[in-house]
Design a protein around this nucleic acid. Sequence first.
DNA 1: CGCTATCTTGAATCCCTTCAAGTCGCGTGG
DNA 2: CCACGCGACTTGAAGGGATTCAAGATAGCG
Lengths: 242, 242
Amino acid sequence: MNVQLTERVKCSECPIRHRAVCARCDDSELDKLDKIKSYRSFKAGQTIIWRGDDLTHVSSVVAGIATLSKTLDDGRMQMVGLLLPSDFIGRPGRDTLDFDVTAASDVTLCSFERKPFERLLVETPHISQRLVEMAMDELDAARDWMVLLGRKTAREKLASFVQMLVQRSHIDGTAIPELVLPLTREEIASYLGLTLETVSRQFTQFRKDGIVEFKDRRNFIVIDHAALLEATGDDADGGVIV
Amino acid sequence: MNVQLTERVKCSECPIRHRAVCARCDDSELDKLDKIKSYRSFKAGQTIIWRGDDLTHVSSVVAGIATLSKTLDDGRMQMVGLLLPSDFIGRPGRDTLDFDVTAASDVTLCSFERKPFERLLVETPHISQRLVEMAMDELDAARDWMVLLGRKTAREKLASFVQMLVQRSHIDGTAIPELVLPLTREEIASYLGLTLETVSRQFTQFRKDGIVEFKDRRNFIVIDHAALLEATGDDADGGVIV
DNA sequence: CGCTATCTTGAATCCCTTCAAGTCGCGTGG
DNA sequence: CCACGCGACTTGAAGGGATTCAAGATAGCG
């Protein structure tokens, strides 16, 4: 694997320290993690883990965006997860994954060898508790996504996606109204169960409807938040996807 | 809630003892569970938990089938989970669910009050470990379902559903080739992201193709397993949904 | 025996896909 | 510097698969 090492950051100064799998750890527990962790970086487009590969490491995303995707025999692809900083890759107790993990942007991971991590897990309830919580959150998000995939129209799907970006920008605390599409049209399509042409057409429609305004192909601002929310098909505050 | 009590079964003699949340418990741990458990029964069609309801209990399904579903403003509904015996209802650490839980058949639950259960969870790693494992399995299943909802045709969706029933009948060990549809056409449609008419039409097509043979509306046998598998759109053994 | 819920079938419609052509923006090399 | 080429994106037109609307069949149950 084409891996680049990155300079070490102490856990206590890590940007994802309060949201990642280590969120509940105390100082002594962080020390243990610090000793067995290593950083790995991937360029945009690189595959981080192939479906079925022996899972030597489990990791937290420190920076960048990764995607989880599954492919059918004939090439049809469906994204089944989007990993943002602090999200966890890998499943303790299983030595392969049933989907590909790909770097959508340049990605930096905080990695642990699986076996030592699993041993640590047994004696560190703070980590396993957090892992359960994160798995449950992911399950909630997956269920919202199932509603989107099974029942929403193309317009509603894209509106939901944009709304998710809006929500996330609030969490990140960036007060800038300008948003960035973290994925290509094709990746967005893969996420939403659409074709890239349909995604493009719906973006055009949003522009014509005065809901968004594009600065260039990747950067845009939401002009009419109410209309966007209306277009998602959800209730005012429900159905929000992490 | 229209609840009926059912006679107590000792945990050690419980039919789901080795698959449910208690699977890893030893005798002394089972004793603790035995003391705080109660049985509750629901008639087919009854709602077990409404979305947003205060979650007083968490439960294991002992017998019957329950569905998890979400509904959009305008009434569109999507099933987001199917609970079979041994599956768990409820999320420790959260006091509501974001979906409705409904009895698809007559259902018997083994329930625990949430608060005592959560206390037990802290001091009983065997239970929390099993809970993680089950959540992870559910997440895997949810991801397979996302591929189905996002990318498969109506024919492939229904074939995948029937194939799941076949798989499950093997697990249950019933050597009888006759299978039972545990859901109505409408419920199947809700599960597959289709309309009930489309489900009906695809069943008819399967009959015409000689893949299945119906004894009546609910009971059928698979005649051509190879063709069924072919029709799922998955690889030979991959993409199986539990 | 008829009532009702469930299911099947048909015909028309529509939304999304597919196929195709063209545009835009950017880095590379002549 | 500009032409070139390529990847990403947009737009159009045609086609198709699933939905919608509607009517009828079937089976279970009082």
